[in-house]
């Protein structure tokens, strides 16, 4: 990310709160968009999303029945792998990077609070990541427009919205890591650890626990839904099927117990993770004695 940029505010005046946040957000957006890592992600995500929509069209050939088959699941898997990876590392790199390069000092010398810096960076990076995701989804929708008469638009829009929410949540966690890290390499390493834990380790551990301790159905559901990625997945399935019954006994238990409340509870879990990470990040950053 380029470090030479400065915050452009009207000269001579202390910026109002939104102006300062927006200025930082704009700079962050611009820096993110000009980074190669970001361009690579955008191209990879768009390419895979288009390929998957072609594949799912081929799969839905007979009777035009768009079931929740393996191909549709592919898009979910892709999102759950790539989106947290990008968002976590982007967030982790942002403040730690500036700290390492020494530009954070200049940034904090401006008449703005530390919370505004965190919020500004969050907004800017959110904008960049969401723009990149929307490009991928938009192209994918283009393919679906062409032939998928039966595909529900509502479910697709929900998928896009939930993915953006997931990205923002992961970004917040990345920022939390970034606030505490002295070096970009350490922050990125930590972000990768968190990614690994969220995507694989927690689920695998819970699987082992389910088998070893013969967990009851409500325990399995409660523990699984704590993981924001699982909550995201269930949220998408909820929008597509209006029920979690494809997820076996635990899903049926959830649908039976919570019913339509799941439609907001599951995105709620994802959102709460992000909000908590964001608050903690701001508190920690504000309390830091050094930059």
């Amino acid at each position: 990310m380029s470090a030479t940029a400065t915050v452009s505010t009207p000269t001579g005046l202390a910026p109002s709160v939104p102006t300062a946040i927006l200025a930082i957000a704009r700079r962050e957006l611009r820096d993110a968009l000009s980074s190669k890592w970001f361009a690579m992600f955008t191209i990879a995500f768009a390419g895979l999303a288009i390929a998957l929509s072609f594949l799912s069209l081929a799969g839905a050939g007979s009777s035009g029945f768009a079931g929740f088959g393996r191909t549709t699941a592919g898009l979910l898997n892709l999102i759950m792998l790539l989106v947290p990876l990008l968002a976590l590392t982007a967030g982790a790199g942002s403040i730690a990077g500036e700290r390492e390069r020494g530009t954070l000092l200049y940034l904090l010398a401006q008449p703005i609070s530390r919370s505004e810096v965190v919020i500004g960076k969050f907004l800017g990076l959110s904008g960049a990541i969401c723009a990149s995701l929307l490009l991928g989804f938009g192209l994918s929708a283009c393919v679906l427009t062409w032939r998928a008469g039966g595909v529900g638009v509502g479910a697709f829009v929900a998928l896009v919205a939930l993915t953006c929410l997931l990205a923002m949540s992961m970004l917040a966690i990345g920022l939390l890591i970034s606030v505490r890290s002295r070096k970009t390499s350490v922050a990125t390493g930590l972000a990768l650890c968190v990614w690994l834990a969220l995507v694989f380790l927690s689920d695998l551990g819970l699987m082992a626990g389910t088998i070893l301790f013969k967990l009851r159905v409500q325990e399995v559901f409660a523990l699984a839904v704590l993981n924001p990625l699982q909550a995201f997945k269930m949220g998408v399935i909820m929008q597509m099927n209006a029920s979690l019954d494809v997820l076996g006994p635990a899903g049926m238990y959830a649908s039976r117990t919570f019913g339509d409340h799941l439609a907001w509870m599951l995105p709620g879990v994802v959102g709460v993770w992000g909000a908590m990470a964001m608050v903690i990040a701001m508190v920690l950053f504000a309390r830091r004695v050094s930059v």
Partner: peptide
């Protein structure tokens, strides 16, 4: 097969691409 044109999806696509 039901491989018909999905206008609503086209609209969604357009909006998403515009925002992006």
């Amino acid at each position: 097969t039901s491989s018909r044109f999905n206008a609503a999806m086209g609209f969604v696509s357009l909006i998403l691409l515009c925002v992006a």
